[in-house]
């Protein structure tokens, strides 16, 4: 009967649930939304996307879940998919500001600035305020090479004191190859949340982009202390340790976004 010894026939053999974990049967949409938020803060966008989907499976009327999915698709650089999904979300929630802002960001990343501007204006005209809408506004300004972007990012940080806002601003600045500005933003995030491994990781990326190899190594080291199995930080550490000059590396660096 060795073939069946791994089957969970006997409930007594199951590992006991963790103290904070609710019973699997009582996990509601809120639980999955919290899990998605945790993953997002850890930089695990693929997992966050799955958790948002799990939350929506239980409650399709969670507009924040649809907006979260769009934002995760954008973080995963799947822009046409994000645009499509935000369009679907807007069919269900026609005046949802964050979904509009998500669609604007997708258009912006795909190079359609006209649509991006129109949607961003529309999102800011909707009821209520959110940091994400101003974050997208800032990104569109940065993409159009206008200096107003920093004011929009500041406004986003004013609206929401969460450390995730400066972190996501830093990621946008990095996308547009402004690592020095990104470093300023991520330092602010680290002031608020010094125990976040992902923030240390992003700081390391900014520093390595600026050529501050030693500081970058320290940041990645700190990230690994906080999260010993952080794959991204391990890879960056390997890259920094094995740094050497080669024409191919210079070429890759030239073409890297």
């Amino acid at each position: 009967m060795a073939r069946f010894h791994k089957l969970e026939l006997n409930a007594r053999n199951r590992p006991p649930p963790e103290p904070n974990e609710p019973d699997p049967l009582s996990r509601d949409a809120g639980y999955w939304m919290n899990k998605a938020d945790e993953s997002r803060r850890a930089g695990l966008y693929e997992s966050a996307l799955k958790y948002y989907s799990r939350a929506l499976e239980l409650d399709r009327s969670l507009a924040a879940g649809w907006a979260g999915q769009v934002q995760m698709l954008l973080q995963l650089e799947e822009y046409p998919e994000a645009e499509l999904w935000s369009r679907k979300g807007l069919e269900l929630f026609p005046s949802h500001g964050d979904l509009m802002a998500g669609r604007a960001q997708a258009f912006c990343r795909m190079g359609d600035m006209k649509q991006a501007h129109a949607l961003c204006d529309g999102s800011l005209q909707q009821a209520g305020q959110s940091a994400y809408r101003w974050l997208v506004r800032g990104e569109i300004m940065a993409a159009s090479r206008q200096d107003m972007d920093r004011y929009c990012f500041d406004k986003a940080q004013e609206l929401d004191a969460d450390w995730l806002v400066p972190l996501e601003v830093a990621r946008i600045e990095l996308y547009y190859r402004k690592p020095s500005r990104a470093l300023g933003r991520i330092r602010r995030a680290l002031e608020i949340a010094p125990e976040s491994p992902f923030a240390w990781y992003v700081q390391g990326i900014c520093q390595s982009e600026l050529g501050l190899t030693r500081a970058a190594r320290q940041s990645f080291q700190r990230c690994l202390e906080l999260s010993p199995r952080h794959a991204g930080a391990e890879e960056q550490m390997r890259r920094l340790q094995g740094w050497s000059w080669s024409p191919m590396k210079i070429l890759r660096r030239l073409f890297r976004r």
């Binding site: 929506l56 409650d59 399709r60 009327s61 999915q69 046409p80 994000a82 999904w85 929630f93 026609p94």
Partner: peptide, 20 residues
């Protein structure tokens, strides 16, 4: 007020986004 569907919980909508 906003025109959003109130029957979403009853609708059969795919909640898994397309992936690249």
């Amino acid at each position: 007020r906003c025109g959003a569907s109130l029957q979403l919980a009853l609708l059969a909508i795919d909640v898994h986004p397309p992936r690249a």
